[in-house]
């Protein structure tokens, strides 16, 4: 009996979670401007229509610039933080790491609002780079979490062995540390990229006149005739996100296998 209830709960949960996403491709290929059943027929017209939307192209370009920059920044910061937290002991380390990880659970609207107030307060013009700043802030904790796991599974004596064999601290990092945590770095880049790409609140608050993809999508929802095209766009984004996360997980697992470490769970 107990098992039955649990199973029903799980099924309802999954339906609730995935049904809306499943609707995206269904209507993206439906030959009608109105989002309703019954379906009218198959078309790729809406995907073709995406090519004629210059604002969309601008938003896409902005989003890509922001996502690439903030994932690279967050991952670089993550490497330093993860390295420091796994190799060195210093007073107040626990508290400091806690503070760095806080944005992970802080409501994004608060992060966005306070950033906006500070930026406006010091007289900065809102632009793409202010969004990059905000996204770096929220991506860094994810990067640290992923990279800490990668650094932790690295045997300290590997670095000592390279140093013992005559390499410098720097070349040891390049020849041993970096290749061995590379799967973690790639996984951090991909996950940060995905987070940034579909982030809405910070982009909405800090982008000024530059739209990003989610902001653009939101603005288009007011026009009913654009909705099938948005569905097509959404379909592409879902496919892309799934692909990126799969690649990220693949690299995380391959990294574990290579260094012979035990899987202690990851994000997926």
């Amino acid at each position: 009996m107990k098992g039955q209830g649990l199973r029903l709960y799980a099924i309802l949960y999954l339906v609730f979670l995935y049904a809306p996403i499943a609707l995206l491709p269904i209507f993206a290929f439906n030959d009608a401007t109105i989002i309703s059943f019954p379906l009218r027929g198959f078309t790729t017209e809406w995907f073709a229509a995406l090519a004629d939307l210059p604002t969309l192209h601008l938003a896409l370009k902005n989003s890509l610039i922001i996502a690439v920059s903030s994932s690279v920044l967050a991952t670089s910061l993550g490497i330093f933080a993860a390295r420091a937290s796994t190799r060195y002991e210093f007073p107040g380390k626990g508290g400091l790491m806690g503070l760095i990880m806080l944005p992970l659970v802080l409501p994004e609207v608060i992060v966005a609002m306070s950033l906006l107030m500070v930026l406006l307060g010091i007289g900065v013009n809102l632009a793409i780079w202010t969004v990059i700043l905000g996204h770096t802030l929220i991506c860094t904790p994810f990067a640290i979490a992923i990279l800490s796991a990668a650094f932790q599974s690295l045997d300290k004596s590997l670095e000592e062995a390279a140093y013992d064999l005559g390499e410098s601290k720097l070349s040891t990092f390049r020849l041993i540390t970096l290749p061995l945590v590379m799967p973690g770095i790639i996984s951090s880049l991909l996950i940060s990229f995905t987070i940034s790409l579909d982030e809405f609140i910070i982009a909405f608050f800090l982008a000024g006149s530059e739209p990003t993809l989610p902001v653009y999508i939101y603005s288009q929802l007011r026009f009913p005739k654009q909705i099938p095209a948005i569905m097509a766009l959404g379909t592409i984004l879902v496919a892309l996100s799934v692909l990126l996360l799969t690649i990220a997980e693949y690299f995380r697992r391959r990294g574990l296998k290579k260094t012979g470490a035990k899987d202690t769970g990851g994000f997926l």
Binding site: D155, S157, L158, E160, A161, A162, Y163, D164, L165, G166, E167, S168, I176, P179, L180, K258, T259, G260
Partner: peptide, 29 residues
Amino acid sequence: PANVRPTNMVFQSYAIFPHLTVEQNVGFG
């Protein structure tokens, strides 16, 4: 510093570089 001392070490965990081949490991120094 350790990297210029005339000593070399065999570590308890062996510390074999997992991303390199046997000959790359042996020839590392």
